[in-house]
Amino acid sequence: MEFQIIWFVLWGVLWAVYFMLDGFDFGTGMVHKFIARNEVEKRTVIGTLGPVWDGNEVWLLTAGGATFAAFPTTYALMFSYLYTPLLLILFSLILRGVALELRNKEEGEAWRRNWDAALVVGSFLPTLLFGVAFGNIFQGLPMDAGGYHGNLFTLLNPYGLLTGALFLLLFLVHGSVWIAFKTGGDISARSSALAEKLWNPLLAVAVVFLAFTAFATKLYDNFLGNPAWMAVPVLAVLGLVGTRVFLAMGESLKAFYSSALTILMVVFTGVIGLYPNLIPSSIDPAHSLTIFNSSSSPYTLKIMTAVALTFVPIVIGYQIWTYRIFRHKVTPEDTMKSGALY
């Protein structure tokens, strides 16, 4: 297999894993205020992210770094064309990280309240903007020999906003299910109920998204040419249905796995549909950025493949180990006992 294809697969996997993991961080960051009834409960909910969020975020840096190393032209053009939305994502991610790490570094209600508000903003904006960005990548960016012909407002088109809404609802449900399974008692019941409530609009938006995709993008062409790939979007739908079914059965862990599967498969659906493009041009197909015309040299790709195949499994290994260490449910009692930790 050509190295470009290996790296395309890796590129898709890095983004998919990133959204699956940071997705519940964002979701939790957005819903914590609606689930927690008092300060201790809030610390409990946010405490479920404590040991893992930082490791989750690195998947984004790796996805970015991998794009730079394997597809430098795409990295360069994507980041400079999407300057303003990326800047907003960057500021939000900084705000989110600082909010999570500093909210417990000072006693006092106002201090925590302000950082909690920062956490909501820092979780909401990246979710929405990543959705808008990927929606626009799916339909293609207006670029040709003269460069890029868009701006922040051309990105806010109906399909871009729809994808933004899809990401928001996906992560809101994902985060609520995460809290449901990581906590117990009342908190868990409340987040479970919230996830069920959010599931209906998610289903509605997902259906509209699947239909609109046929008109706004060329993503389905690859599936029509190769129907076996249809298994991927079908799995996404099964994951979505599974989330709801397991929630109703009170099986929050299985619901979480289902919702994780949905996110993975949604991203894979988009990535498979893009192939061999990384960013299609919406105005001149000759200027689409493909894995062949924007990649690094075979030598670099070979070395980076060796690096990735060595280290990514190790990373997955110790991250799974981390989730095992912290597999216990976080309770308000623990939170009180650990004092300043949360």
Partner: peptide, 26 residues
Amino acid sequence: VGDIFGAPLAIEATAAFFLESTFIGI
């Protein structure tokens, strides 16, 4: 320069930054 300069940055994220961010949580 991405062909050569991107490599150490990507390796940094994969081989070092993951390690530090995961174990700081632990």
